[in-house]
Write a protein that binds this DNA or RNA. Structure first.
Lengths: 246, 246
DNA sequence: CGTGGATTTGATACGGGTCAATGAGGGTGG
DNA sequence: CCACCCTCATTGACCCGTATCAAATCCACG
């Protein structure tokens, strides 16, 4: 069971593309890291796949999905809304992240909506198969606990930041987070591809979009960052930003 | 293996009190709910016990505990601090809650400090025993995932509330949460024993203590609640409060 | 009954939300 | 290829809400 199948064999995605021949869609997913290649192939064979366009809703708040969704390319946001339509983004997920496990394992309705931030590919693993998988591989449970732990510490940071930290600090923290996920080192700094618009950033941080503009402007004046087009930010002084974010 | 041992037999807590004869310290702990009584007794035999006074620190931020702590009476707060000493309370734990599992399972330093809010009793289950337990009973892992799920949805609520909800709404939500944990129905409403001081409430909600006073005063003027001494609040109009909290 | 910490109340300042107008990009069609 | 338009982002002015500082009062405890 070699990891790279012969080119003549269609990959488990049902497509015959270079991408899929290079990697199984279950490959590189942290919660499956302990599985052998043949197991990965078996799972991959049971997954459904679908692509989404930017702005498409993948999961609606309050629904009862009967699958775990694993993000296999692109990025999505998970957000909740208030009665008056204001949005609070809770997570930005990218390749390798999953969602829906709570709803599936414990029959709880989804408390957030998931929406594509850019074109993206998702694998869906249905309830029965996922439960089987968990039963057969107890340490996937551990890996899920681990991932939930990270997610919790992300939320714990958000709560602390929103509660007691200054705006600049919160913006700094979000920039650092996005830099970690979407940043590329260059000789003049780290160029970050921003999956979120200014409004998205605002809804992630929990402030007004105008304030995001103002504060980013200030950071730019101080030479810490530089806007590159509308969807990129160059971090010129990572040290200072880390200082700011605490 | 009867659940209530004969009175002549000392309970697993090493004490000979009515309390312990009535229930094992591992009893009523949700994550152990699936275990049989003899298993509970076996675990209880491996736990260490300790009582803490109000204000005592149980776990320090940044430390590497090698145990899971299970709260067996009383209540504690889990909080983080900023460099300038401001506190953000993340959780209020009470009987049956546990903490330390992340640090133990994945060797991550604790990101929050845990402090007793009132005299309380804790059981400590050490790394080796806890891991053994998890290995022997895979569905404890599931129960932990479930509990983490609840905790996450608590945090997700906090984030949304802090981001986009009004202060009144956030105060209402906290009152409801505490009412659920520490409230007792009476004919004139629900009397809630408040484990947190006004300052504690402020640090939980992420606002100034003076503002807590003012807003509670407003709710009292509106007849929704009534302060009873410093450490109790009577919720007179639960409907209105739920409305407020959203 | 007195003392000290916690809570409430009051006055003031300032940060950030909101509204409104202007400016920059990117895609479309002429 | 350029002009236009539509959307998103920026900038400015103003105002409200909450933090902050200060003082008075309450309450629990010895």
């Amino acid at each position: 069971m070699a990891s790279s199948a012969p080119a003549s064999r269609s990959c488990s995605c049902g497509q015959h593309c270079a991408h899929c021949l290079e990697k199984l869609c279950t490959h590189g997913i942290p919660i499956f890291a302990s599985l052998a290649v043949d197991q990965l192939e078996k799972i991959a064979g049971k997954t459904l796949h679908r692509s989404y366009e930017k702005g498409e809703t993948i999961l609606e708040e309050g629904s009862h999905p009967d699958y775990v969704a694993i993000l296999n390319g692109g990025s999505v946001k998970a957000s909740r809304f208030t009665a008056d339509g204001r949005e609070q983004i809770l997570y930005v997920f990218s390749e390798g992240d999953f969602f829906g496990e709570q709803n599936l394992l414990f029959d709880r309705p989804a408390v957030y909506a998931v929406t594509a931030l850019e074109p993206c590919r998702l694998c869906f693993l249905y309830k029965k198969d996922f439960q089987q998988l968990l039963a057969d591989n107890p340490d996937i449970g551990l890996r899920i606990i681990s991932e939930l732990g990270w997610r919790m510490s992300h939320l714990e940071n958000s709560v602390r930041n929103m509660g007691v930290r200054s705006l600049e600090s919160r913006i700094g923290a979000v920039l650092l987070e996005l830099a970690g996920k979407y940043g590329a080192k260059q000789d003049d700094g780290t160029l970050v591809r921003m999956p979120l618009s200014r409004e998205g950033l605002a809804n992630y941080i929990g402030i007004a979009r105008e304030t995001v503009s103002r504060k980013l402007g200030m950071l730019e004046d101080e030479g810490m960052i530089r806007s590159v087009g509308a969807r990129h930010i160059l971090i010129r002084d990572m040290k200072a930003l880390e200082e700011l974010a605490g």
